[in-house]
C-alpha cells in the first residue's frame, strides 16, 4: 500500500508539472499568434504569462521583441537580460540586447570580475558544480579509506582539481548572488528621488533600460545606484533580473 501511495504521489506531481508546462506552452503559442497579427500588447501579455508559469529563454526573447515593438525599451531589455540569465549561450538574446542598447543609447551594466565569470554558465549550473566538485574532492579523499581500497595514483590529482574547481565556483556563485541585485529602469524618464516619498525631490530622470544596482528597499521604493548617481525609485519603475 505504501508503494502504491508513493507511485500515486509521484504521478500527481508529474502530472502537475506536465499541466503547468502545457499551459505555459499554450500561452507561448498564443503570443506567437498575437505577434503575427500585430497585436503586440496582447502578445506581450501572453509571453509574460508563459514566462511567469515557466521561465524560458525563448519565451523571454519573444517577450522582449514584443515589448520593444510596442515601444517599451526598459521592459524589452529586462526580458532579454532574463533570457540571458537563463541561458547565457542564447545568441538571439545577446544580439537583441546589443541592438537595443545601441538604439536606445543605454549602457550595459558594469560587472565586477567575479560577476563576469558568473556569466559563463547559467546561475544554477554554478551551484550544482560547486556542490559536485566539493563532494567529489571529499569523496576521493575519504572513500578509499572507508571501503579499504588502495588509493590510486589519480585519486589525489583529481581531488585537487575538484577542490580547485570548487574554489573557483565559490567566486562565481558570489557573482551570481551579486548579479541578482542588478536591475533595469522600466519606465521612460523615471524620476530618481532624493527621498522614498511620492513628493520627494527629483535628482534626475532615468532612461528606460538603464542599468542600476538595488542597494536597499523601503515601502514602495528601492534605493538604487546607477553608474553615475544614487537615489530612490518606485518599485514599478525598476525590474530585477532575478525576480
Amino acid at each position: 500500500m505504501r508503494w502504491h501511495r508513493q507511485i500515486l504521489l509521484v504521478a500527481v506531481l508529474f502530472g502537475a508539472v506536465i499541466c503547468r508546462a502545457g499551459t505555459a506552452n499554450d500561452y507561448f503559442k498564443v503570443g506567437l499568434e498575437m505577434s503575427g497579427a500585430g497585436q503586440l500588447p496582447e502578445a506581450a501579455m501572453a509571453f509574460e504569462k508563459s514566462a511567469q508559469m515557466q521561465p524560458a529563454s525563448g519565451t523571454l526573447v519573444n517577450l522582449g521583441i514584443a515589448e520593444w515593438r510596442r515601444g517599451r525599451a526598459g521592459a524589452a531589455i529586462l526580458a532579454w537580460e532574463k533570457a540571458r540569465w537563463i541561458d547565457p549561450f542564447d545568441s538571439r538574446a545577446g544580439a537583441d540586447l546589443k541592438f537595443a542598447r545601441t538604439a536606445a543609447q543605454v549602457d550595459e551594466p558594469e560587472l565586477k570580475w567575479f560577476e563576469t565569470a558568473s556569466t559563463w554558465l547559467p546561475p544554477n549550473a554554478w551551484a550544482w558544480l560547486a556542490g559536485a566538485s566539493l563532494w567529489l574532492a571529499v569523496g576521493l579523499l575519504v572513500l578509499p579509506g572507508i571501503f579499504r581500497r588502495r588509493k590510486a595514483g589519480w585519486h589525489s590529482p583529481l581531488a585537487a582539481l575538484a577542490f580547485g574547481i570548487f574554489l573557483f565556483t565559490l567566486t562565481a556563485n558570489v557573482g551570481v548572488v551579486s548579479r541578482t541585485q542588478i536591475g533595469f529602469v522600466l519606465k521612460k524618464n523615471a524620476p530618481l528621488l532624493l527621498t522614498p516619498t511620492r513628493t520627494g525631490e527629483v535628482i534626475s530622470t532615468l532612461t528606460a533600460g538603464e542599468p542600476a544596482r538595488q542597494l536597499r528597499s523601503r515601502g514602495n521604493f528601492l534605493f538604487i545606484r546607477t553608474q553615475t548617481e544614487s537615489g530612490w525609485i518606485g518599485r514599478d519603475a525598476f525590474g530585477l533580473v532575478g525576480d
Partner: peptide, 19 residues
C-alpha cells in the same frame, strides 16, 4: 532585431538562483 523564437527554449523552474 532577431526573429521570434518558435520554441520556448531552455527552461528553469524559477529565475531565483539556487544559491
Amino acid at each position: 532585431l532577431s526573429g521570434l523564437a518558435l520554441m520556448p527554449g531552455k527552461t528553469v523552474a524559477s529565475l531565483k538562483p539556487l544559491q
